[in-house]
């Protein structure tokens, strides 16, 4: 099967992969004299799990920041749903249906789990200030509707018991899960995960893998993730982009990437004799 053509196909485990949802076209990102990303192009197809890997400092997180609108690329364009994305603020990108988690947990520490996840639905709420001040009409109805959606996510992630706990008090693994929940609450078209398994023990990693697969499978959410655990990446993802020093050195299915000599060089080093 040639996954490089753009025709929809069905994976071995029966998930449908559609056309291109997001495309990075010749992205270059410079910070003054430092070139973080050098002329990288790749696409993400609807319904797939796409991994971005590479050694430390390869520019993976910068790439994710470009995708989520936090950085504007110096050159190149981000195409989303077949249109080039104009320059916009991060919150406007979020409204397009792109949600993300962070490498270092970026939860709202002073708020409960429930409030954190409710905040994730902010892109879908639009009652006005007066309604909210009087807790009347649309504000009240909206609160109930969105609470139901949030409760579904809480059930899905199995975090019912910590619903009202301030997230600052939760252990690391659970905080990561709440953060995933907050991103999911937006019902995104595409979910960007920055090292979702960093610093977890084996059990927590297995849980997180299960949730990522379930999200992809049940909600049909497209996922792009950065991860250092090669076992996880190779098992989870449909296609992998490999970056090194800001350049793309490999792109393809896990098997193709694994046998790519440049990738092996980047990860294992090469003898210069």
């Amino acid at each position: 099967m040639n996954v490089m053509s753009n025709d929809p196909y069905t994976t071995a485990d029966g998930r449908r992969i559609g056309g291109v949802l997001m495309e990075m076209k010749n992205i270059t990102l410079r910070f003054g004299g430092v070139v973080a990303i050098k002329d990288i192009s790749f696409d993400i197809r609807e319904g797939e799990i796409r991994a971005i890997i590479g050694p430390n400092g390869a520019g993976k997180s910068s790439m994710l920041n470009v995708m989520s609108g936090f950085y504007t690329p110096t050159e190149g364009e981000v195409w989303f749903e077949g249109c080039p994305r104009p320059q916009m603020r991060p919150y406007q990108v979020a409204r397009q249906g792109i949600a993300r988690t962070f490498q270092n947990i970026a939860l709202f520490q002073g708020m409960s789990t429930l409030d954190n996840i409710m905040t994730g639905r902010i892109t879908r709420m639009n009652s006005n200030l007066l309604n909210q001040a009087l807790w009347w009409g649309k504000a009240e109805a909206e609160e109930t509707v969105h609470r139901e959606a949030v409760e579904k996510i809480i059930d899905f992630l199995e975090i019912q018991h910590i619903r009202k706990t301030p997230v600052g008090r939760l252990p690391y693994g659970l905080q990561k899960r709440v953060e995933l929940g907050r991103a999911l609450a937006a019902e995104p078209r595409i979910l960007l995960l920055d090292e979702p398994m960093a610093g977890m023990n084996v059990e927590e990693k297995e849980d997180m893998c299960r949730f990522i697969l379930d999200v992809n499978d049940e909600f049909g959410t497209t996922i792009a993730l950065i991860e250092h655990d090669m076992g996880v990446v190779m098992d989870l993802s449909d296609r992998v982009v490999v970056m090194d020093y800001g350049k793309k050195i490999g792109d393809g299915t896990p098997d193709e990437v694994r046998s790519n000599p440049e990738v092996i060089d980047a990860y294992l080093g090469v003898s210069h004799d």
Binding site: F70, Y91, L107, F108
Partner: peptide, 24 residues
């Protein structure tokens, strides 16, 4: 309600708040 959560989101971590869709 919604506006209170967006205030607290800005208070606790303004960058993350903006990325999940709070208009700062």
């Amino acid at each position: 309600g919604t506006v209170g959560r967006s205030w607290m989101a800005i208070r606790d971590m303004d960058i993350a708040a903006e990325i999940i869709g709070v208009n700062p």
